[in-house]
Design a protein around this nucleic acid. Structure first.
Lengths: 132, 132
DNA sequence: CTAAATGCAAAGCATTTGCAAATAT
DNA sequence: ATATTTGCAAATGCTTTGCATTTAG
């Protein structure tokens, strides 16, 4: 995946800071602002938190980053991908993606409510195999 | 429902402020801190935001209030009830409860992941009938 | 060369804390 | 009567903004 190209497609300059943000998110999946900052500092000791906030915000607006709200945790960010759900371990706080068949639930919700539904946010919490 | 008794059961004094917080949440379903503050001010013009924060926090810890995270919105609070999901209208921002059969999705998630899952947070977004 | 991005410091909000006065039990 | 709660003010923490400097294209 060519991150520089992706950035440019969205009219964003491919700065080293941005490339590294995308790279870190690609490798780590889901991170909150502080975790991102800590990892970025290793490569850019003079990096400013303001730069992270600005970039996260613009990338979210351009829709190739997604904010994910997890119960009892700070918001985390992930690269946009096909719709999917999340599993959270309440012991180690790790977050993973999972593909679930949400069609039944959506259909059920639509028929009960008469809402036009087009987006689902599903976060399931429990204990991961490692923490068991 | 006797709110005063509920409060006392949790070792919380039934102050007028607390009773009104519970009453407002009972009548309005889901509110964020600011909405709660605005409504409470009508009855308690000298009410402090700090009091709301303190009370929301203690009630959440005592588990008879739940914090609900909605994408692109401030956190809202609701009285604890049986597990249920939420529908959000992205036009008018209203939030309603909905009972969905989550057993299939949970079973699916468990078998794919080997997690021990015990909690689900499901928020579906779309357009409500009124806004259509 | 130019527009955009960075880093710093300051500003702006949201939330929490400490404490004296008031209140529920 | 006592421990808890309230309301205020101050403190803390998180996020955004403004601006001079640097950098990508």
């Amino acid at each position: 995946m060519d991150y520089a190209l992706t950035l440019k497609k969205h009219n964003l300059k491919a700065t080293p800071q941005r490339l590294k943000i995308v790279d870190i998110l690609y490798k780590n999946g889901h991170l909150n602002i502080d975790q991102l900052y800590e990892l970025l500092l290793k490569k850019f000791p003079s990096l400013s938190l303001a730069t992270i906030y600005k970039n996260i915000n613009t990338m979210c607006k351009k829709l190739f980053l997604q904010e994910v709200k997890i119960p009892h945790q700070k918001n985390v960010y992930e690269l946009s991908k096909n719709e999917h759900s999340h599993l959270v371990c309440s012991k180690c706080s790790s977050i993973i993606d999972i593909d679930l068949d949400t069609s039944k639930i959506l259909a059920q919700a639509k028929s009960i409510s008469n809402y036009k539904l087009y987006e689902s946010s599903i976060v399931l919490s429990g204990i991961c195999p490692k923490c068991t």
